[in-house]
């Protein structure tokens, strides 16, 4: 005990410095989501390697479930493809027809990715994916599950990793609409339960119902990406709109494989919005 006290006396200055610096850096890192994401994407370059090894083991044990889900997904895609062929009177695409399909003009590109690490127990959660700038991943790309459920969108990338702002982050906001009648609303997580989010400003004429699906409505994502299903709803105090509690369509805590979605027109839309804004200010 005496030796321990002597040892602490010798190094107390370094300990004090590390404590003060650690608190200052922690405060700085968590002060804004930008800092948090930037630091997270830097630290994941090292941490991602170790987390990757752990998740590889997890992936091995979840392979049967993933195979079942992929098989179901292939079946749905095959059906869609068959319907398209029948609509256009094409039986089987030959190599010339495949080459003629100009992939550069495609509206949405999909990049498969896997979750390296994530949190769901904080107010500001983040998800780290194993694809980064070297894989053509850029900020503002959407992230969904393979069965088209919303996860979030990319906010920063390092060379090999990217950080996602998921729906379970109190800074996250997204437009939504009822899948049945396309009435608009805004969706936001209040930071309480990791299984529920809130939908606000739903028109009084929307006729919401329990169990109705709410889709994402965002330039970052294609149509048909489900956020969740209405669990309950009520009028706001002024009775001018509905607020609804949605049960999330996906369980983020068991997230594994995801699709990163690039809207190839996103830059053009952003540019147009900025130009319009500038013109309005003039």
């Amino acid at each position: 005990m005496q030796r321990l006290i002597e040892f602490i006396k010798r190094i107390y200055l370094v300990l004090l410095f590390l404590l003060m610096e650690g608190v200052a850096l922690w405060y700085y890192a968590t002060a804004t989501p930008y800092n948090e994401a930037k630091i997270l994407s830097r630290t994941t370059a090292v941490g991602g390697f170790f987390s990757g090894m752990v998740t590889d083991v997890g992936h091995f044990f979840s392979l049967p479930d993933e195979n079942r889900m992929l098989t179901e997904r292939i079946a749905v895609l095959e059906q869609t493809l068959q319907r398209e062929r029948e609509l256009h009177g094409i039986d089987v695409l030959d190599s010339a027809q495949v080459a003629a399909l100009n992939m550069d003009n495609i509206h949405y590109r999909y990049y498969p990715s896997r979750v390296t690490s994530m949190t769901t127990n904080r107010q500001r959660n983040f998800v780290v994916l194993d694809k980064g700038a070297e894989d053509d991943i850029k900020p503002n790309m959407g992230v969904i599950t393979p069965d088209r459920k919303l996860v979030g969108y990319i906010i920063s990338c390092s060379r090999h990793y990217s950080v996602v702002l998921p729906i379970l982050n109190t800074e996250f906001n997204i437009g939504g609409r009822l899948a049945d009648n396309r009435s608009a609303c805004s969706v936001h997580w209040l930071g309480d339960s990791p299984h529920y989010v809130e939908a606000f400003d739903l028109s009084t004429y929307a006729n919401p119902a329990v169990g109705m699906a709410v889709e994402a409505s965002s330039e970052r994502l294609p149509d048909g990406v489900i956020i969740g299903h209405i669990e309950s709803f009520e009028h706001n105090a002024a009775k001018t709109a509905y607020s609804a509690r949605l049960k999330l369509a996906t369980d983020l805590s068991s997230l594994d494989n995801v699709l990163i979605v690039e809207n190839t027109h996103y830059g053009e839309i952003e540019e147009l919005l900025k130009t319009t804004e500038k013109q309005r200010q003039k």
Binding site: L13, L16, M20, A24, L25, Y28, T32, N35
Partner: peptide, 29 residues
Amino acid sequence: LFVALGVGLAMDLAVGGSGLYTASLLPLA
């Protein structure tokens, strides 16, 4: 170290540095 902490905190509070001024000044001390 304590003076650096005080100066850093005062700067952070005055200009909204969120710990940036403190974190960069402590190593100098």
